[in-house]
Amino acid sequence: MVQSLENGSNTLNDTSGIVYNTQQLNLWYGNHHALKDINLQIKENEVTAIIGPSGCGKSTYIKTLNRMVELVPTVKTSGKILYRERNIFDNDYGVEELRTKVGMVFQKPNPFPKSIYDNIAYGPRIHGIKNKKILDQIVEKSLRGAAIWDEVKDRLNTNAYSLSGGQQQRICIARCLAIEPDVILMDEPTSALDPISTLKVEELIQELKADYSIIIVTHNMQQAARISDKTAFFLSGEVVEFDQTDVIFSTPEDKRTEDYISGRFG
């Protein structure tokens, strides 16, 4: 259910500035009902965290937002996801177009086995930018945006695999920024990283918030509390609670949310 916040201020019913409006979304993997009647409204220039125990559907949900979930052949969906007021499941809405506006950062750093430069330039190139000068500018801007320019500016032509895991993940974020997306989806982006790299990525997310809407799936509740503005708690394919992060972590309405965030299960 869409839940309005108390006091009427900051109400989620205000439709301006909403990037994603999910309405009655259901999703099945074959016979397994993975997402049940999801209703969520995600606002722009905010960090929205999705938390929940393993298998609750949080990764499935975020992958539905750019339709990556459809790479699994047995997936069926019903309901609507309005991205900027347009249903992403519409037949005339190409996934390629959607994914140009909605970038994704994955759980495991997955740079291409190419040079750092070619990794960043990949997105602009597939969308038709050939001019070397423009590409150079995009690469620098994206690497700066991902706070890794100073570390790699002298070796843009080395293979991205020569970097550390944390650097690779920031390269992946830079690669995502290079297509100048509107939304960035992050699927547990720090779960494969050490604490210091995690901290860097978290700081980066805080900076990116000014220009992008960020939706992040995380296993780590402290992380959600640290970096997000709103938090959705998923359980068994349902949204149990969706609210301001400080509300979720201090005075959750639902007993199950309280049990989860206080570490009683999950």
Binding site: M68, T100, M104, P111
Partner: peptide, 23 residues
């Protein structure tokens, strides 16, 4: 070829053909 680099390519709006040829 690991699936996650394919996903990375699709995730940036690449078509299947672009992913096959470039990745």
């Amino acid at each position: 070829v690991p699936n996650d680099v394919r996903e990375a390519s699709y995730g940036m709006g690449a078509t299947k053909w672009q992913t096959v040829v470039k990745i």
